[in-house]
Design a protein around this nucleic acid. Structure first.
Lengths: 246, 246
DNA sequence: TACGATTTGTCCGTATGTATA
DNA sequence: ATATACATACGGACAAATCGT
């Protein structure tokens, strides 16, 4: 049996059409779509149906909708946050451990540290140093770098050494998920001090253009973080058991 | 300044509440949400508003909505397809090349082939052989394995050697994006034959428990595919130029 | 500051299609 | 086969936000 197109939900038709127009480049990011009332007539559906379709497209990150005069639906590039959230939602059901995230880091980040040491321009080295300086300032004020955007930025910026957007994306969500775990575990000052020291060593190897050493220091750093987080997690579990017993 | 809750859109409140309930485990996959009319009264919104929220949650993969008696919104695990699509949408705007995808494969897949050789049980080896057999059957019928689900399955199944869901996910979308590129390029029979030969070598190394060799063969396989795809792409570009000139 | 124009956000009422029992 | 429960779809009205004058 064949299903006639009209058997599907109307909104899925609209979603598919707009989505394909964007992916084919017929609609470019920044361009405005016609306002609701025009789209209603163009697609021949009711306001209710059209708005459902726009909501879905918005959830997928394809459009943003602004209210008021001159507003309306605007095509936008699907951004990293939308994608990161989607990945995080998926992995939430997959029982991801610190070990899983660290395993990926151990494979990829030492490679990237080496590339950075071999490829970074003077400008890029300066930018990396600035990120590191910001980390230190945050530590001095808050006595922690955990959850600090700059602490992740250090790693993401290295990923950009690869000039590979897929690599950047993977490192982005791996590091951001790890940070989420960290903020639950609430590491101590010592942990943050170790992180800053490790970053320092990695930075110096990169600045010296020493690929071998950068690779080696990065691997050691990731292993350290994994070990310390595991230890802290076990400590928390024990405390939880004691509390439960009381 | 604090924003009063009433400043945001009603649907975002509903989305946030349901989303958090699911992520906290208060709502488990498989559970039904109350039907529309009950949710309307619970949240104190209109049909239209509620449905927009449900559409967004559906687009994010958190719920599925079934029609008819006994239907309604059902909580579901966010699945790989939803996530894969989201990633593909994001990377569409990032100019991803065969080289970018291959770079990730070169880092991860040889590592995974080694793990498979070291860890796979007899059952798993048998399963892998069956996947390979299916690939060959498809090749004999269609004279190609490009775009065949089984050809990706070979790589994904190896990723499962890591018992690492993040690894499986990364390999899933990298391989599926590469396959999308392949189907556009339309490789010849020779290409498919090379793929099958490489898979054979990798399989034999894994079966023999030879981690070194499995790692080495996998790296060679990925480099081969990258090189051949690049060559085919250049060929297509030249043909396009000739056509344009005429 | 204020007002009008534009455009989305929200609500109500009603009718129709679809799956289950 | 009929009834029931549920989502899907349409139209009209008013509120709220934003922009320009």
């Amino acid at each position: 049996m064949f299903h006639s197109a009209s058997h599907d939900k109307m909104s899925t038709h609209i979603i598919r059409q707009v989505r394909e127009a964007i992916l084919k480049g017929q609609l470019l990011p920044g361009q405005s779509l016609p306002p609701e009332k025009d789209l209603i007539t163009q697609f021949g559906v009711s306001k209710h149906t059209l708005r459902e379709a726009l909501r879905s497209l918005e959830a997928m990150g394809f459009i943003e909708i602004k209210r008021g005069a001159g507003g309306g639906p605007v095509v936008s590039e699907v951004d990293m946050e939308t994608t990161r959230d989607s990945i995080a939602n998926f992995l939430h059901f997959q029982n991801v451990s610190v070990r899983d995230l660290s395993e990926i880091r151990k494979i990829m980040e030492p490679y990237l540290a080496r590339l950075a040491a071999e490829r970074f321009s003077a400008q890029e080295i300066e930018k990396l140093e600035e990120i590191d300086r910001k980390c230190r300032k945050i530590f001095e004020k808050k006595k922690s770098v955990v959850g600090a955007k700059e602490e992740i930025d250090f790693h993401i910026f290295l990923a950009q050494a690869s000039r590979n957007p897929v690599m950047v994306m993977v490192l982005d969500f791996v590091n951001s998920m790890l940070t989420d775990l960290k903020t639950n575990i609430k590491p101590d000052m010592e942990f943050s001090q170790h992180v800053l020291d490790s970053h320092q060593k990695i930075f110096e190897a990169i600045k010296a253009g020493d690929g071998d050493k950068a690779q080696e220091c990065m691997l050691a750093h990731i292993c350290d973080v994994e070990r310390e987080l595991e230890a802290l997690r076990e400590r928390d579990e024990k405390q939880a058991k004691i509390k439960q017993a009381v």
